[in-house]
Structure formats: C-alpha cells, structure tokens
Design a protein around this nucleic acid. Sequence first.
DNA 1: CGGATGTTTCGGCTACGGTCGAACTATGCG
DNA 2: CGCATAGTTCGACCGTAGCCGAAACATCCG
Lengths: 216, 216
Amino acid sequence: MGDPARANMLTALMSGKALTATELAAEAGVTAQTASGHLAKLLDGDLVLVRKQGRHKYFALAHADVAAALEALMGLAAGQLRTRTGPKDAALRHARVCYNHLAGQRGVQLYGSLLDRGFMEEAADGPVLTELGQEFARDFGIDLDALSAARAPLCRSCLDWSERRTHLAGSLGRAMLIRMEDLGWVRRDKASRAVLFSPLGTGAFDAAFTGRQSSI
Amino acid sequence: MGDPARANMLTALMSGKALTATELAAEAGVTAQTASGHLAKLLDGDLVLVRKQGRHKYFALAHADVAAALEALMGLAAGQLRTRTGPKDAALRHARVCYNHLAGQRGVQLYGSLLDRGFMEEAADGPVLTELGQEFARDFGIDLDALSAARAPLCRSCLDWSERRTHLAGSLGRAMLIRMEDLGWVRRDKASRAVLFSPLGTGAFDAAFTGRQSSI
DNA sequence: CGGATGTTTCGGCTACGGTCGAACTATGCG
DNA sequence: CGCATAGTTCGACCGTAGCCGAAACATCCG
C-alpha cells in the first residue's frame, strides 16, 4: 500500500468511481502488465474489489475502511510530500498524456493558470468554465459547442500522480491537447506517453498559460 | 511505515509508553544500528518524537493521528497476517531473548500454556498468576516471594514480533528463562539473541508447557 | 581519567520487489 | 471467423532499501 504505484491507484479510486485496469495503469504511470501485478496484490489484500463487465474489469475500493485508512495516511503524509514521486523518466514527469489529456508539470501549470486567470472555477462537482474562460477557449481554437453537445463532461479534474496536484481532464482537456498538437506546440512520443514540447511550443505555452507558475 | 521492522516498533509504541532505541531494536528483532536508521526515518517523517534523557533516547508516537492511522491499518491487515513476519534467522523465530525473557514460538507456547492450564489469567492491566499458577511457579523453582517483593511487575505481556501474539514478560518471564538455563534446558547464543534448546530441554519444555500448542 | 553502555555513522553485501518486453488468453466487434 | 482491444503470465533486469560488522561519538559512572 505504500508503494507509489499502488498508492496512486488507490488515491485515484478514492473518488468512489470504479476504474478499469488500463485507466489505473495510466493513473499510476506504469504499463498495463505492471498495473496488473499491483492490482492482483491489492485484490489479494482485499483492499479493492473487482467487477468484470464485458472485457473490462472495473476496480473499486473494497470497503469504506480502506478509504478511511487512506485518509488517515494522507493526513500524516500532508506537508512532507516525497520529492521522488514516481518511477520512470523525467520527461514523463514534465509532460505526458494522461488517458487523453495533458498531465505532468505542464498539466498542472495549465490547470493553475486557468484558475488564476479566472477562466475556470472549482465547483463542488468539479471545475467549470467561466464566461471569460469560454471566450478564451474559443479564441484558442476549441469548438466548444461540439464539446458541449456530447454527453461527456466538459471539465474534469484529475489527480496528477507525479505532481500530486490536479490537472485538467474531461473533453476540454482532451480537445486542448489535440489543439496544441495541431498548433505544432507539442507532439506525442508514441513509445512512452511523453509529450514533447517544440521550442516554439515551450514559449507559446508559457505565454498563454502564465499565472501560477510551477512553484518548485 | 509498511516495513516490518518499523511496523513492529510502532506497534510496540502503541502502548503509549516511551521506549529507548535499544528496546525498540529488540522489539523489532533487529540490531541497534539498523534500529537507529529506522528511527531516524520515523523521526524524519514526524511519526515519532524523541526525548533525550541522559544517555537514553526515549521514543514515543508523535501524535494521536499516528496511532489512529496504525489502528486503521491494523484493521485492514487483520486476518491476513503475513506469513513471512520478520527478517533474520529461523532460529530467532523459534526461540530468542526478548529483552530478558523468552520470545518466539516457544515464548507464545509458554504463554498460551499458562493460560490454558489456568495458571494465569488476563486481567485488564495485564496477566496475573492464579493461585494454581503460583503453586506451579514455586514447583518449577521460582522464588516468587523475592520477585513479589521487588517493585517490577511480576507478569507483563509482550507482543511477539515474529509470531504476532503475546508472550510472557515481566520479572516472572525473566526468572523463568533463567531457571530454564539453570535446568540445562536452554542456553543463549550470545552472538545472536537466539535461545537454543538442548535435546533434553525440548522434551521437558513440551511436557511442562503443553496445552495450546503452536497452532500453525 | 579509563571503562562500560547507549546511539549513530559508514561501508559493503544481499535480496526482494518493481519494472518492462514479449508472448499468451479472453472478450467483443464487424 | 479474423481483428482489435483488455487483461494476464512469464522471464529477466535492475535499483533500492534493509541488514549487519566495525568503528566512531556520546554519556554516565566509578
């Protein structure tokens, strides 16, 4: 339970929602095989339970006690977040794809900037775009109407496993990553989930999403 | 916090009493050097606090939150106690000196036997010898009067780190170990804290302390 | 001032556990 | 039926963290 990968999986499950093995793998920043091993251990320890649905396996916390224990541990850990958060490459910590949106230092920078500049606000059931933010998104080249028409939530926050802070998920998060690819700011390294910034993209991103800079 | 040695130290501290580094080392079944390293980590993580008193260092849990988290974790761990409990030698798990009394499989066998045969009862503030038990102890060759005269508690229970069950501590526990040495049943391996049973001692011990056999 | 005891630091050894690539099974979809 | 996707198993690699012996430092005690 203290292992970084497992801890990240469990915190991801703290939302109460059931997640598939691959989602948890992405959340923990490990490959599917590794995640499978971890999930087997968590199952063995009765920390999570699984529901097989079609070809997916949905995992959830086994009991409220598990959540309580996690809460207690997080309380103890508060303040002294370990610096060496996860395994893997430094590039992954800098910027990577989380499911389909931007994660890592760049991801939390984006999220923080949107909040600081009044483009987004955190409501009870997740972040929402302000009117200012909607305008900004359109200017940025996002087809908000198309996104809103779909049933998927526009904004979602997602806990960043390497930074331990939230970044932007949801269909908007996905759309913004795609848009940045189109603009030539970034490209995905197919092999490693890393997101590589072009020289141009680095400057443009910083200019567009200043505000709460990475405070490290 | 998940490391066996540290977990054992923390559970030992759950009593609320402050213990010295060497006591904690014995409780965890590691040497003083190793314990020192663990304690430094626990201090670094603010899980314990230390009070220097003369040449001793007394450690205690830093906060009730730590105890709460431990409780929560123990609840989760209940039932599925890991089989491979501690490091070190198999001989140590079989029988060893815990501070000054007998611990390991033999230690919990002794404790269980005393309970099962009505020689000892578990009261709120620790185990107490029954009248039958007092008679037994005298027959065994223990000078109960001398022990009772001293201010140290006669019986104490002590959590066994390898068996995760209680064994007998206190001045009686100490006296019984000494007596068994005198009888030639056991001898202490000075180097390793292990307690080695002679062929004679093995049989005699089993005969004297049947009852609740090790149920593994 | 030695000598004994408690605690820490250092160095090196070892083993366990996390990680991934590759290959395998299972499920759904066209 | 194949093909794609989700998940697992196997094997091998590697890093790290635990462990201890030896030796240093600290404190008390006679």
